[in-house]
Structure formats: structure tokens, C-alpha cells
Simulated assay, not measured.
Amino acid sequence: MTTPTDPQAIAERQLCGLVNGLAQRIAEHVRERAATLGLTASQATALREMSGPMTMRDLAERMSCEPSNTTFVVDKLEKQRLIERHPHPTDRRAKHLVLTPEGTALRGRLLELLHTDSPLSGLTPEEQHVLHGLLERAVTSG
């Protein structure tokens, strides 16, 4: 099998490489910032995504992982007293995940650290907005 030499195929391959490189830089950035707070990258991702009460399934979706993996992460955050499980207001089978005051404070510090020297900070807000729209379209169009 030969490698496609069509200019469009080459451009697409290069673009995939760039997106992968950016994802790796973002993951490394999260790992480094999480470590300064005594968190794993998965714990930091969970805290970052906890913008309000949500179910385990909602958090798993935001973290792009399986609910069973999210359960492990939430168990650790609960032991650290950063997250609590509360009864869901309308679904007896589900639990609402809620940040504790300590979790809210740590999330605030984490968000500040993640914003500092972010791999995306070299882009203007307008460029970030355009990139967001393009990536969203690419993710949802297939």
C-alpha cells in the first residue's frame, strides 16, 4: 500500500499531526499544573469540568472517558474532601456530584494555573474563537 501523495491527503495528514501535537502539549500542561496541586491529570480534568452539580455520566462525558473511570477519579476526590455525592433531585438512581468549599477553592486555583502559559495563550481571543468553531465543526461533522 502506498502513501497518498494527493495534496489534500498530505494537508489532512499534516493537520492531524498538528492537532495531535497540540493535544499532547495540553495534556502535558495539565499534568504539570495538576502536580503542583497534588492532583493527577485525571483529577485536575474532573475538577476543571465541574462547573456545577452534575451526574457521574455528565462528568464522564465532559472528561471523554467511561463512567467507570470517572468513578475511580471521583472516589479519590471524595476521599480528599473535594467532591461530595448528593441525591439527585429527580432521579433516585443517580447521584449529583457537588464540589465542597475546599473543592471550589482548589478548582479556582487550578483554573488560574491552567490559564497561565497555556499552549493556547499564543493565540488572540479572536483566534481562539475561530479555532474553537473549526474544531467543534470537525468533531461534530462525522
Rank of each mutant, 00 (worst) to 15 (best):
12 E>P: 00
122 G>C: 09
105 A>V: 00
19 V>S: 07
98 V>F: 00
60 A>L: 11
2 T>V: 04
16 C>H: 11
86 H>A: 15
21 G>H: 14
32 E>S: 10
51 S>C: 04
71 T>H: 08
2 T>K: 05
119 P>V: 06
90 T>H: 12
84 E>H: 05
138 A>T: 09
6 D>F: 02
29 H>L: 05
28 E>P: 00
37 L>P: 01
98 V>C: 01
107 R>V: 01
110 L>W: 02
135 L>I: 15
136 E>K: 10
47 L>S: 09
21 G>Q: 14
140 T>I: 05
139 V>W: 12
49 E>D: 13
33 R>D: 01
89 P>S: 07
60 A>D: 10
35 A>Q: 14
14 Q>S: 10
81 R>A: 07
11 A>S: 12
49 E>R: 15
102 E>L: 02
105 A>S: 06
59 L>R: 11
63 M>P: 10
62 R>G: 09
4 P>A: 13
80 Q>N: 04
55 T>M: 04
23 A>R: 13
53 P>W: 05
104 T>H: 03
68 S>F: 10
73 V>T: 15
69 N>L: 11
63 M>S: 10
137 R>C: 02
3 T>W: 03
46 A>D: 12
120 L>F: 15
89 P>G: 07
20 N>G: 14
132 H>P: 00
73 V>M: 07
133 G>K: 05
58 D>I: 04
46 A>K: 04
82 L>C: 08
43 Q>M: 13
33 R>Q: 15
96 H>W: 09
72 F>A: 14
60 A>G: 13
38 G>A: 04
57 R>F: 05
135 L>T: 11
9 A>I: 07
14 Q>G: 05
141 S>H: 13
111 L>I: 08
10 I>W: 01
31 R>A: 15
73 V>G: 07
112 E>I: 02
127 E>S: 10
50 M>F: 04
118 S>G: 09
131 L>V: 14
16 C>E: 12
42 S>P: 03
71 T>L: 10
72 F>G: 05
66 E>Y: 05
23 A>M: 14
119 P>K: 10
46 A>N: 12
105 A>R: 08
8 Q>C: 01
134 L>H: 08
